[in-house]
């Protein structure tokens, strides 16, 4: 089948970009979306034009590298799927396909479809961890965890940090990302000592990075390739508000405490 692609091209962070149209004449329905772009890139290189840059790595839906908005939806039309596992059989012959990078102030475009998502790392740095040094842990079975809690924690921990939630949100909010980590750790007994501090610091960092606020439209959940529930955002709100209002924890830039 044939497709008409409209792709965001931008040389580097400083340049202004634009949408450029390309023909993709040899698309096999069995290809993944990224393989379709590989083929287009091989053709572009043959013609002496710079290939389209895009982030990708594992190509099996778990590393969270791939990141593109396809016809207005992050990761494209299939539910619970990353772009790398999206197959061309979900498109129709002759279709116009618009491909854009994640759009957010906190995710500046580096080139074409490649964006800088280091803001997510800094949110984790602010508190997305349990402070335990290697070698100091007690026997794992000394700490029973209710199966339900462990399962729910795993539901939250499944986040791959791709940023589709930010890309889908009209406010470029990172609430689902932050909430997933706060909930993953907050649901476990190991995570309790730092629970309040974690919520306050991570939210603070999230705001500082320039992500927007939540309008409770749940677009994030609708596009999340791991289908993480917005129920975790409610949990984060609860943790944050109770920590802010009812505890002495004020949070701070997290510094080493060893």
């Amino acid at each position: 089948m044939k497709l008409k692609l409209h792709v965001w091209r931008q040389k580097d962070r400083q340049s202004t970009g634009r949408m450029v149209a390309y023909d993709a004449p040899n698309v096999n329905p069995e290809m993944s979306f990224l393989e379709m772009l590989d083929v287009v890139n091989e053709e572009l290189t043959g013609k002496g034009e710079d290939p389209i840059a895009f982030d990708h790595d594992c190509r099996e839906g778990i590393c969270g590298s791939c990141s593109m908005v396809i016809n207005g939806t992050p990761h494209g039309p299939s539910k619970g799927t990353t772009v790398c596992q999206l197959h061309m059989r979900h498109f129709t012959d002759g279709q116009d396909v618009h491909i854009e990078p994640w759009r957010a102030k906190a995710f500046p475009v580096l080139q074409d479809l490649v964006v800088d998502r280091s803001a997510f790392d800094r949110i984790i740095q602010a508190g997305g961890f349990i402070s335990v040094n290697s070698g100091s842990a007690q026997d794992a079975n000394n700490l029973p965890v209710a199966k339900g809690d462990a399962d729910q924690s795993m539901d939250a921990a499944a986040c791959i940090g791709c940023g589709a939630c930010v890309a889908a949100c009209k406010n470029s909010a990172a609430m689902l990302f932050a909430a997933a980590k706060i909930s993953h750790l907050g649901l476990l007994p190991q995570g309790q000592p730092e629970r309040r501090r974690r919520a306050i610091n991570m939210v603070k960092q999230m705001d500082l990075e320039g992500f927007g606020n939540c309008s409770n439209q749940y677009e994030c959940e609708a596009v999340c390739p791991k289908e993480i529930s917005v129920g975790f955002i409610a949990r984060m709100n609860r943790d944050y508000l109770s920590s802010s209002i009812f505890s002495k924890e004020t949070g701070s830039a997290s510094k080493s405490e060893d």
Partner: peptide, 9 residues
């Protein structure tokens, strides 16, 4: 975005 579709909002 040049094209934006809503899934749930």
């Amino acid at each position: 975005y040049a094209v934006k579709t809503y899934r749930r909002a």
